[in-house]
């Protein structure tokens, strides 16, 4: 049964004496794209790490809600979470296709190789590139491959940390399309980015973190199928960002 919402309550993360997150509470809903904004070192990646189950919060709770109760089984949970992080998670000696096929096996994806090929088509890595060792990839190609990895098991929850980094214009616009599709199909989306232009129109929920604290939150409900009319515009996002971080 798929996750319908994530509820973060009073989450704190300490690294030694340093507080990376200081009591963050947040609700993430299906069919909504939440833009997580904030200056470097604000704790955005840390929050993503906690939501992805990799990092354990020092205090506070994260509840993953299904229609019939909370998801507590870690394996069932991880099966539904797709992560794109700063690093690519790719083995340099293996080709793009082999990397994806390997992760496909770990995720128990049926027909892992065929599924990998289909995703490589989606992220537009051509036949020659996908059969080359990943260490020969450019930054943008690696980012496309990492994105394919995040989507491989068709996750319900997508946690993307600066997904537009390194992508060219076509890459960025096909990522934006993928995000719109995911939103349409009722996924939970959390996107950390500084590229406000790329997510303008798609975003209906904005959260600003600063020094580990949630300093601003705003939502705008969108009519189904009219995403670009009611979401936050580029100007809105820029204003919000500068107001709370500048």
């Amino acid at each position: 049964m798929s996750i319908r919402s994530i509820s973060v309550s009073n989450v704190t993360k300490r690294y030694g004496l340093h507080r990376a997150l200081a009591g963050v509470s947040l609700e993430l809903d299906a069919g909504s794209l939440c833009a997580l904004l904030g200056p470097n070192g604000a704790g955005k990646s840390t929050l993503l790490g906690i939501l992805s189950t990799l990092v354990r919060a020092s205090s506070g709770q994260v509840a993953y809600r299904r229609d019939d109760g909370d998801e507590r089984d870690p394996l069932a949970l991880r099966r539904q979470i797709g992560v794109l992080a700063h690093s690519s998670f790719m083995y340099g000696e293996l080709t793009g296709l082999e990397n994806l096929a390997f992760y496909g096996q770990l995720y128990g994806v049926a027909e892992a190789r065929a599924r990998a090929q289909a995703l490589l088509d989606d992220v537009e890595l051509d036949e020659r590139a996908r059969n080359r060792p990943a260490r020969t990839y450019s930054r943008g190609m690696l980012q496309r491959l990492a994105l394919a990895r995040a989507l491989l098991h068709d996750p319900t929850v997508l946690l993307l940390d600066e997904p537009f980094t390194g992508l060219d214009r076509t890459g960025a616009s096909s990522l934006a399309n993928a995000l719109a599709d995911a939103k349409q199909s009722e996924r939970i989306l959390l996107v950390v980015t500084h590229d406000l232009e790329a997510i303008a129109g798609l975003t209906d929920h904005v959260v600003v973190l600063k020094r580990g604290k949630l300093v601003h939150e705003d939502r705008r409900s969108q009519a189904v199928g009219r995403a670009d009319e009611l979401g936050f515009s580029y100007e809105d996002l820029k204003t919000i960002y500068h107001q709370h971080t500048g």
Partner: peptide
């Protein structure tokens, strides 16, 4: 060490396997 290079250890730990 190889599992650190592109943080692949995290990639492994994120997978839904024990």
């Amino acid at each position: 060490d190889r599992e650190r290079e592109s943080d692949t250890m995290r990639g492994l730990l994120l997978a839904p396997c024990s």
